[in-house]
């Protein structure tokens, strides 16, 4: 989503984006936020520049915002980190929060089971180095 019109989105999508991906077709809708009204609601509209800055919001199936990341324009986001977060939130949701995902968690790695026995015992169940693996 940007403040560009859907017409500008068409030109950019057809002439550049579609050539950058193997599928040849952008698999998601390109949304137009004319005037930055939506960006304002999401706290990412820069009134001075008249644009939406780089904001990425994760919204779960109930419509709840579970995470976001906002960067100023010159640096891009990390798609793999976004996917990692989605996988982690999906795991938590699938276990009805019986299992939670510590720092750097990826599918297959150590999860934690919140409860009385875990209090002050995280260090026995999870090592800091796992956050960097």
């Amino acid at each position: 989503m940007s403040v560009d019109s859907a017409f500008v989105h068409k030109v950019w999508t057809d002439n550049e984006l579609s050539k950058m991906i193997t599928a040849g077709k952008v698999p998601f809708p390109m949304l137009s936020d004319g005037g930055g009204k939506v960006g304002e609601m999401y706290g990412v509209y820069d009134e001075d520049a008249g644009v939406d800055v780089r904001g990425r919001f994760l919204i779960d199936p109930d419509g709840t915002v579970v995470g976001f990341e906002v960067l100023t324009p010159p640096v891009g986001r990390n798609v793999l980190e976004t996917l990692r977060q989605i996988q982690a939130f999906q795991h938590v949701r699938a276990t009805k929060s019986a299992e939670v995902c510590p720092s750097g968690w990826k599918p297959g790695k150590t999860v934690l089971k919140p409860g009385p026995d875990l209090v002050s015992n995280v260090w026995k169940n999870w090592k800091v180095k796992e956050a960097f693996e």
Binding site: S2, Y42, G55, F57, L58, D60, I86
Partner: peptide, 20 residues
């Protein structure tokens, strides 16, 4: 909210044809 029931990644960016 037409996407309720699905996971959604909502991405804002400064503009078409920006380089990053």
């Amino acid at each position: 909210f037409d996407y309720l029931g699905k996971w959604v990644v909502l991405c804002f960016y400064p503009g078409d044809f920006t380089f990053v």
